[in-house]
Nucleic acid binder design. Structure first.
Lengths: 346, 346
DNA sequence: TTGTAGGCGTTATCAA
DNA sequence: TTGATAACGCCTACAA
């Protein structure tokens, strides 16, 4: 087992000083061509690689980005992660990935752990519990230490920072608009508990569309489900009682689940009931019928978040603070067979 | 903006030496109760946290694990990742996640990058290209430096190291056995190019089962698809020509895709054609009909891999090398509606 | 009981 | 052109 070689080893072997070696490896003009060649040849031979830790300690830069997401087995978050990873690598940053498991405590622990020198900045989507309890001390604290962070998707108004969002409200509005143009009258919304920022936005777009186009907002047409453990009884009753002819769901699991359920009862999709989901993931694509979805462009979102963060990391030094920005990623509709394709252009 | 506080700051402020502070924070018996209290109070007040980098540099331990997987937007890999992350956090390790994108080059770059002090060990599934080209220098090199690693799922016989696998061959055998017991005669296999270790194992189990139960192995019943960009023409022809009455697919995407396709042509699943997939992911669950799948228990796999790695990290010091182990995670069948539920116990 | 000194691997300043 | 020295933040053997 070879041991990792250091500057010191090279210096000793070549009978020069450590600083000479360091400079030679950087092609410093202070060093003679001879020495440079000798040192570099030796370094190459023994496959010298500088120790990241030492460099980080010295430079106060880790070139690591901490990503904290509520769940990794989740199409949207992994897609965003992919975008973050992709852009970050391009710019020479690694990604340390942590999962908060929808728990505030884990979010805090992960953040504190990484904040002590492991990471130059954070990109995160808040856990359910964090949004529910409105507890953001960990964010303010990290900011106090001058560590920048970017929130995406699951954000809060209480903290000022860079954010990346989709136009949830507008997207929901457009989805409902499409239903209305297709002649639907009883448009249901299936959503989560309303402490999620995204659900809130989507619900508000839903209401706004109904009002705008002169349809009554019927609270009984709004079904709130927990985001795990779908209760079929409740869903079943919902679909049995209200004469629903179109459904917008805040995620694709709700949508596909409900679509399967009503089809089992003989309802024809899309003829008798149309469906639109959010998150254009793998489920939407392989559902039967294919689920029309509002695509959230997670990859792009991740790229943008990483770009904002790295920009801030690399410009946070001396200059005066730039104002925080909120980037909106436009959601687009991906039409499949769960809706009737009119001439509407969204 | 507060700046991060260090031992030095505390020492200066309290007019003691740095080492006194260091010891006091560790409740060293060398230090007087008075000083300990004073130091700890101050540290708490100013929210002192030791710098991870400095500790790592000193201790030669990062408490980071590098995970390199081919793709993150992929149910099985994220599930494994979840297991790794879960176990690692429990043991005080963070996870640095890298995506190789099925590219050998990216796999090598990521590995070299992290090997220079960022990580105490690796857990990885080989990229498609790595398996295809049989190029493993990066693995041997890392091992030469004494950095342990564990391979899971996508492994190679050419490198000796700890491995975590599922019993691919046996699982495929059992799946085919189930078909045969259900009276199926024309059992097709839909797989990938055969440089994937998992596909190889599954194919071999498929062949073995046919032979064992006296059915002919018909090469025309084996369809090899690229793992992206499914070509419907080819698949269509495959199903049109061979009188197939049961299909085993090496992943759930192939399975659901084909199931949708044949259903569109009026084939009744499972009555006329049964399906079994691998990877019991979200697609299997929400497909219509629900897809019977060989579950790979990714979470468990991740936990086991992390456990093996951490064990090796923490025992690699002085003692003589322990022999490498290969852990097998037993795949189990999750029966849904795409197969006919006989009395068979697998 | 407290402090000094050296080291982890690197970089940067300044002196030779 | 090269080298000695100090520093990044922490730990620890040893000296006071």
């Amino acid at each position: 087992m070879k041991t990792k070689i250091t500057l010191k080893h090279i210096a000793r072997e070549l009978e020069v000083s450590i600083s000479t070696v360091s400079k030679a490896l950087k092609n410093s003009s202070e060093i003679s061509a001879d020495t440079i060649e000798k040192v570099q040849a030796f370094a190459k031979l023994y496959n010298y690689r500088p120790n990241n830790l030492a460099i980080s300690l010295k430079s106060r830069r880790t070139n690591n980005i901490g990503v904290i997401i509520p769940d990794i087995v989740h199409y949207f978050f992994t897609t965003v992660f992919r975008g973050i990873e992709h852009y970050s690598k391009e710019r020479g940053y690694n990604v340390i990935a942590c999962v908060s498991d929808e728990s505030l405590e884990k979010e805090v622990i992960n953040m504190e752990l990484l904040a002590n020198g492991s990471v130059d900045g954070f990109i995160m989507a808040l856990s359910a519990e964090t949004q529910k309890k409105n507890h953001f001390d960990h964010l303010s604290q990290v900011r106090d230490y001058g560590i920048p962070f970017v929130l995406f998707d699951r954000v809060t108004d209480e903290i000022e920072c860079d954010k990346v969002l989709i136009n949830d409200q507008e997207a929901a509005f457009l989805a409902v608009k499409k239903f209305i143009e297709n002649g639907r009258k009883k448009i249901a919304l299936i959503t989560t508990e309303d402490y999620f920022s995204v659900s809130k936005g989507r619900e508000s777009g839903y209401r706004q569309a109904l009002e705008t186009f002169g349809l009554p907002v019927d609270e009984k047409l709004i079904l709130r489900l927990p985001f795990t453990d779908l209760d079929n009884g409740k869903v079943d009753e919902f679909f049995n009682t209200h004469g629903i002819d179109a459904v917008i769901c805040v995620n694709e699991i709700f949508a596909v689940h409900c679509m399967n359920l009503v089809q089992q009862k003989g309802v024809k999709v899309p003829e008798e009931m149309e469906f639109i989901g959010f998150t254009d993931g793998i489920l939407s694509k392989y559902a039967k019928p294919g689920l029309t979805s509002m695509a959230q462009h997670g990859f792009k979102m991740g790229q943008v978040a990483a770009k904002m963060l790295i920009h801030r990391i690399e410009n946070t030094q001396d200059e005066e603070e730039e104002p925080y920005r909120t980037e909106i990623i436009k959601s687009t509709i991906i039409e499949r067979e769960s809706t009737i394709n009119g001439i509407t252009v969204l």
